[in-house]
Design a binder for these strands. Structure first.
Length: 206
DNA sequence: GCACCATATCGTCAGGCGGA
DNA sequence: TCCGCCTGACGATATGGTGC
């Protein structure tokens, strides 16, 4: 199965980034009693990064799982209600008087998150001005503004992508957890069945 | 109340991957 | 080949629990 290709399980204080590793291993161990390949000691961070980045996306993984196993739900393309952000709420880059905390960007005047502003039904977030064609840019200042605008747009998109990725990862971990539960029950049943059959096939001689 | 620790959450960067 | 998306890694910050 796919998880055998990603048999690294590194400990890290930040649970979010690593928690699925243990679970995957557990599922793998239960599903097929295979040798649980542990991370072979010291791997330099570069190599580790290289290896880990080859993991396919959670959507892909889970969808593959769901095709293999009937009970496994597929990850939907968009599931905005769970995020608390309706589809027409777009993240905005606010150019002036904002500061940023880990919980978002705030205006200098209050606690109101400024990046969640309801946008019209168009694909583009409100406040994101369409890029001027490169030919129409003249002064260095305009070029700098354009670069800044592009950067903000990129950061905004990546911010949203990271949120979505984390949401999928949580869903994926939940899915693995339920799979573990199911497999544990199955395993228990099979062991019981085996014991019963043993009893039947080898009757005690008096 | 405070310091400290563990865990959770977030934003950003870097780099791989897949589609055009 | 380029571009956009996805996700691991990392650091910063928030939050909750515990001992003093």
């Amino acid at each position: 199965m796919w998880w055998h290709q990603h048999n690294l399980c590194f400990r890290h204080p930040v649970e979010e980034d690593y928690s699925s590793g243990d679970l995957e291993e557990k599922v793998a161990t239960i599903a097929e009693t295979d040798e649980s390949a542990e991370s072979e000691g010291v791997i330099d961070s570069h190599k580790r990064r290289e290896i880990l980045s080859r993991r396919p996306s959670y959507r892909k993984i889970l969808n593959e799982l769901s095709s293999d196993v009937p009970g496994v739900p597929k990850i939907e393309e968009e599931k905005s209600e769970e995020e608390g952000t309706p589809p027409n709420i777009a993240t905005m880059a606010v150019p002036t008087s904002i500061y940023q905390t880990s919980t978002g960007q705030y205006t200098a005047t209050g606690d109101m998150p400024t990046y969640q502003i309801r946008a019209p039904t168009t694909g583009l977030p409100q406040g994101v001005v369409m890029a001027a064609s490169p030919g129409s840019l003249h002064s260095p200042q305009q070029l700098a503004e354009e670069a800044t605008r592009k950067r903000e747009l990129r950061l905004m998109k990546n911010r949203e992508a990271a949120k979505e990725c984390r949401r999928r990862k949580k869903e994926y971990v939940k899915c693995l957890e339920s799979r573990v539960a199911v497999l544990e029950v199955q395993n228990k049943k099979l062991i019981e069945e085996l014991e019963t059959l043993k009893d039947i096939c080898s009757p005690k001689t008096d």
